[in-house]
Amino acid sequence: MTELTLDGLITIMRECAGEDEAVDLDGGVEDTPFDELGYDSLALMEAASRVGRDYGVDLPEDALGRVRTPGEFLTLVNDRLAAVTAAGGAL
């Protein structure tokens, strides 16, 4: 299963939640909190839903609620993906 990259996540955020004109999303934002990037919890839900569909991985709401930065989001997604792969793609 393909890993979600920072570029991939940023593309998804742009497509499904838009982009704050005051923010540079291409400037190495892995550790920048989502709220400083202009994204609220609903934007994260929307992105999580899209990632869930595109990557075939389910992101639990409680885990998503603890995610503060794109880097943490990637860790959550890619850990789940690794678990799916380890379980033979049937988590």
Partner: peptide
């Protein structure tokens, strides 16, 4: 319309 508002 601001970019963040277009998708919503």
């Amino acid at each position: 319309v601001p970019g963040r508002l277009v998708p919503q």
